[in-house]
Design a protein around this nucleic acid. Structure first.
Lengths: 167, 167
DNA sequence: TACCACATTGACGCGAACGTCAACGTTCAG
DNA sequence: CTGAACGTTGACGTTCGCGTCAATGTGGTA
């Protein structure tokens, strides 16, 4: 390691990949596909990922794993979203105000669409969860009925509640 | 159409695929991969899908699209689950009672695992939803700030609540 | 200055999940 | 009994999302 002084801000591809739980190949591939903007480099050419880059990478993972989008779809969304960065990075009253507003509306639309999709998925997942819980109940019924022996129950799914965990 | 008298019980591949929103190729592929048991056939060899088959097909879709499992994983789950059918279809006290119980426990375990996965996903999706809603708020802020003109708001995402819809 | 872990760019490979012919058989309405 | 619609089995093709070399360059430590 170059330095152990707590937190460094820029990561090279190795650590970046490790933290993001992806492979180096995958990161390069995302860059190649335009999902990630070419990150800054060291003189030698080594990639240096900024915290913003890391955020974006995490975003990609979420969109892919949670919502099941293809990389192409994700690219579109991120591109539309990028208006955010174009705003943060100073943008004065140089481009048409109308154009800005248009981009913002686009971004808003895309984001809203994602939310709606999440809602739909969550609804379906909830009802699927119910079905599964019902099945568990039936399994338990059968297991109790067909086994005279006594066995302590370990873990059963309760009615409502969500569990949160990172890694 | 062969018959328009309300509901037929068995569908051939064309209608089956249409109703399931899949292609015929996909159904055959699933069969080929062991995800679907070989359905009954007409004399000529045409596949006839029973309502149970259709249910199973729907199950596969859910596991794939909602939870993002691979077909191989889905096969495993369905195989484990199949104890359900083995029960429904008369099974007397011929096989070891112990063996039955073991299979049931397996099935229960698999199902429980699915539930846990759903819970995890839903938790993550909920937090992602929050982030997105926050972004929408910022977009609206900017849009209002940078546009003096008045514009009625159409649809904004509220705090909690899930929307349900089938097709 | 030498070393070694780490990185870079090609380029080819690969499994999953189907798409897409081609050649041929089946059903059924007319 | 004929024709159009529908289905069957191969078999090869395709896209996506990376994996896996190979040859070569970099960067910090000893």
């Amino acid at each position: 390691m170059t330095d152990s002084t707590s937190q460094e801000r820029f990561l090279q591809i190795g650590e970046a990949a490790e933290r993001a739980q992806l492979t180096q190949r995958t990161l390069r591939y995302y860059e190649e596909k335009g999902l990630l903007a070419p990150p800054t480099r060291m003189e030698g050419g080594f990639r240096l990922y900024s915290p913003e880059d890391m955020e974006r990478i995490e975003r990609i993972r979420q969109l892919k794993e949670l919502l099941g989008f293809s990389l192409a779809e994700i690219k579109e969304m991120l591109d539309a979203e990028d208006v955010r960065l174009q705003i943060r990075a100073g943008w004065r009253a140089d481009a048409d105000a109308a154009e800005k507003a248009e981009k913002l509306r686009r971004a808003r639309e895309v984001t809203l669409h994602q939310i709606q999709l999440i809602d739909q998925k969550m609804a379906k997942m909830a009802s699927m969860r119910d079905e599964l819980a019902e099945r568990i109940r039936k399994y338990d019924e059968w297991l109790l009925k067909h086994s005279e022996a006594a066995a302590a129950n370990a873990d059963a799914p309760q009615g409502e509640g969500t569990a949160a965990a990172s890694s």
